[in-house]
Design a binder for these strands. Structure first.
Lengths: 118, 118
DNA sequence: ACGATATATGAACACATTATCATATACGCA
DNA sequence: TGCGTATATGATAATGTGTTCATATATCGT
């Protein structure tokens, strides 16, 4: 436990060194950061991403599994796609979605872990 | 680069193993996760947290440094305090705020790094 | 107790977000 | 070409969010 905290702090300092002690965040970076976190700030999108973390899914599969309307799923997938957090491949009339940003998925799973172990 | 991705995937799999392949996220965890990400999904709050990452600050110091009204800063600090993302110590009439969740700060700095290196 | 300064709070407004319904589009197949 | 299924889109209504102004509270020094 104590070790975890010290480990985290060490990594934070590493970032500072890497960045050359970044002062204020530039506007473009700030925009991307907040947009991405906004994407993760909604239960529906988190559930979809968490599902896609485990396996590629069609739109209807997502809707059925999570008990969300197809239209809602589609809207949220477009949102996630614009941020390049998901991608899809076509198979006939069916679209199979999967995640497209390993780093963000790692962050999501980290947060889920952090939240349920506390 | 390629190595980074493989490293991330490995860590994701580790989470799966740790969790015993968690299927759906339970409601309470989902709530905490989305609330926390929501906190990080606003430019003002991100700027405040990023500042507090570097040093403890009084409310006015934050307001002056980031050019935000005192009232706005105070409101956002309350928001962050409710989520236990920040804490404060009193020194007379001045309140010095600092961050209070190493793990979330790590995630924030990770995302900033990810965003500006892309 | 009073004035000065630091911070917090509440109400109000503008704006963003989300889910839903109805409908459109796209593809495969007979 | 026309039908059935899968997905996308647009408009709308309900709700949530962020900032601001005005004002309240709190602490210190005199």
């Amino acid at each position: 436990m104590q070790n975890d905290i010290r480990e985290a702090r060490k990594t934070l300092e590493d970032f500072e060194i890497e960045n050359g002690s970044s002062d204020e965040i530039d506007d473009e970076t700030l925009f991307i950061v907040t947009q991405t976190f906004k994407a993760l700030g909604d239960p529906t999108r988190v559930r979809i991403l968490h599902l896609l973390f485990k396996k590629e899914c069609s739109v209807n599969e997502i809707a059925d599994t999570l008990d969300i309307r197809q239209s809602t799923v589609s809207h949220q997938l477009r949102f996630l796609k614009n941020l390049r957090l998901v991608k899809y491949r076509r198979a006939g009339t069916t679209l199979f979605y999967s995640h497209d940003d390993e780093h963000v998925m790692l962050i999501l799973e980290q947060m889920i872990n952090h939240a349920c172990h506390s």
